[in-house]
């Protein structure tokens, strides 16, 4: 899993640290594209990029690039609170009519969807576990809140080497 900077990184860490997680603390707009490079290098493994609405909005062009690349093992899940939560909860585009799933559909994604309840999240988890014909993008609408943060390591070299060791690659 690759998590976008801000709350998605804290959310991913909050459910348990894992060697197969790569947490971003910067590189805004890059989460899904790191997922693309990883998915292309590891076609036999499923890759999930977990990000936020602000982070994905900065990488809108990347949705087109991923749509053209058409990896069958990459899912993007956007935790969408319709705000830039890290910087003072300023309203983002997704609460003002911009629909990331419609953009992904227009870019040729194999499946998209928006969920708003925990029951729908459960069904989404089951869907993500199934194979796909191409990239998928799902939006989970959440309340704009600031729950306590669960902070992973900010040492990108450590997280990188740990991730690669998890896949069986030696550190340089």
């Amino acid at each position: 899993m690759v998590s976008g900077l801000g709350s998605p990184t804290y959310d991913l860490h909050s459910v348990g640290d894992h060697d197969g997680n790569f947490y971003l603390w910067g590189a805004m707009g890059g989460a899904a594209l790191i997922g693309l490079g990883l998915a292309q290098a590891q076609p036999g493994k499923r890759v999930l990029a977990l990000t936020g609405d602000g982070e994905q909005l900065m990488g809108l062009g990347g949705i087109a690039t991923i749509g053209v690349a058409r990896p069958r093992n990459l899912d993007i899940v956007v935790i969408d609170n319709q705000h830039f939560g890290e910087t003072g909860m300023q309203a983002s585009h997704t609460g003002r009519g911009v629909d990331l799933t419609a953009i992904a559909t227009a870019c040729g994604f194999a499946a998209t969807g928006t969920v708003r309840t925990l029951e729908e999240v459960q069904r989404l988890a089951a869907q993500i576990a199934e194979s796909a014909d191409g990239p998928r993008l799902f939006v989970i609408k959440v309340l704009a809140e600031n729950p306590p943060r669960s902070l992973p390591s900010r040492d990108a070299v450590f997280i990188k080497n740990r991730f690669r060791a998890h896949l069986g690659f030696a550190a340089a």
Partner: peptide, 20 residues
Amino acid sequence: NVLTTEEEGIAIAAGAWLGG
């Protein structure tokens, strides 16, 4: 990968390396 803007390639390169 053809990109819409060059910084996408920086992220893809990092992901590729994570995947070996």
